[in-house]
Amino acid sequence: MANKTIHTLISKFFGNDLPEAVRCAFGKWFVGGTHQQEKEEAMLELWEQVPAEADGRTIQELNKLHDRIQINSRPAVRQSIYRRMVRVAAILLLPLIGAASAYLIMQHEPNVLEPAWTECFVPNGERKQITLSDGSEVWLNSGSLLVYSAKFEGSQRSVYLNGEASFRVAKDLEKPFIVKTGHMEVEALGTVFNVEAYSDSELTIATLEEGKVRVDTDMEKGEPIILRPDEQVVYNNQLKTISKVIVDAGKVLQWKHGYLTFQGASFDYIVKTIERRFDVTINYETGKFAGRSFTMKFRPDEGLNQVLDILKEMVNGLNYRIKDNIIYIN
């Protein structure tokens, strides 16, 4: 796994308010024996990106960390861990203290992790299909993480998603299938649907192609939303707004086959999708494109330059240049 992917994983998942099962599963991978050098380098890179020096609050947080180490770690490792933390204190961003402390403590306390969950992470620029133990088929889009039980024991089949996935659910009337995200839960018995829930987006979107699903959000509890084929619910977790619209669900799910399809999408949304698809970073002035929406479709064989050229045709005055893996739009 590329170091950039490790960097993205750490910065995306630490500090976010994610379900406990997701944190445990990610922690299991994070402190595991694979990609150890890349993890260390990614942590160091994150630390070195922070120009601020340690202040009173940083030291206070480090003292809290020290207390945690005293409680959770064996005596032989306490001082070693704390010395490592103090050594990088001057370049620690406060949210990263949580990441660093979890990393260092879990290195010595692996039993705190839940072994019953499995995770599947798909890096930017890739897509992946997996089959769950109940026979349900899942397509995962670029930059997505799915956490699921290996056996689906209990009264329901719950999976946790950060990113975008398409589900073809195996029927089991006694065990409902539930997709949980940071702001939405989608429940189905036997159906085909799509859920988009990236942690860096304010939108969580559920789209139904076949069957019927029930959608709940983290707003104040009310009547759940029932979706029927070709219906889509869009939840804005910042504005706390919900809308239900009619769409062509088949087109929404075409990303599984390599298509990029946008129906009335904002420029910000298009940019983030391109970043994940082609594993690039795009720098641009958000305000210049606010309030506009675009409908367009790109074939699987169209590369990054072709996509950008079409954007250039559609957006008056847009120009771009590419340097290394960064795209500058002006």
Rank of each mutant, 00 (worst) to 15 (best):
D216C: 13
I178R: 03
D324C: 04
Y235I: 02
I327W: 01
F298G: 07
R74Y: 13
S73V: 09
M184K: 00
V233Y: 09
R23H: 09
D279K: 12
F121H: 07
I81D: 00
R68P: 00
T204S: 11
Q129A: 15
L260A: 09
D324H: 03
N319P: 00
N63C: 12
P110R: 07
G211D: 13
I6P: 07
G258C: 08
G291V: 01
G258D: 12
A165F: 03
E285P: 02
A265S: 14
A265Q: 08
P110M: 06
E275T: 02
P229I: 07
S142T: 12
E38M: 15
E187R: 12
R23C: 06
E164W: 04
Y198F: 08
Y198V: 02
D55W: 06
Y259C: 06
G291W: 03
D248T: 10
P224G: 09
L304C: 07
K28A: 10
V213A: 01
K212A: 14
R299Q: 14
G163P: 09
K175V: 05
Y235H: 11
G27I: 00
L208P: 00
F298Q: 08
S158Y: 03
K221C: 14
R321I: 01
K244Y: 09
K297F: 05
A165V: 06
T8C: 05
I225P: 02
L304D: 03
K212C: 13
P224N: 11
I97Y: 04
L208Y: 00
L65V: 15
Q60I: 05
D268M: 05
E196Y: 04
A42Y: 01
I97Q: 08
P115I: 02
F14W: 11
L311V: 04
L65C: 15
Q79C: 14
D55F: 05
D55G: 13
K272V: 03
S155W: 06
T58W: 06
M1R: 09
Y269A: 10
A99F: 00
N319F: 02
G317Q: 01
Y198H: 05
E187D: 03
Q79P: 04
A21Y: 11
R83N: 15
Y320Q: 07
E53F: 07
A2W: 12
M1E: 11
G154S: 12
F14S: 01
V112C: 14
I59F: 14
A99S: 05
K221N: 15
V215G: 07
D301S: 11
R168H: 14
G303P: 02
S155P: 11
I130W: 08
Q70T: 13
V138E: 02
S293R: 05
L203K: 11
V271K: 01
N141F: 03
V215L: 11
F121G: 02
M43Q: 09
H183Q: 11
K256L: 07
R87Q: 14
T191N: 01
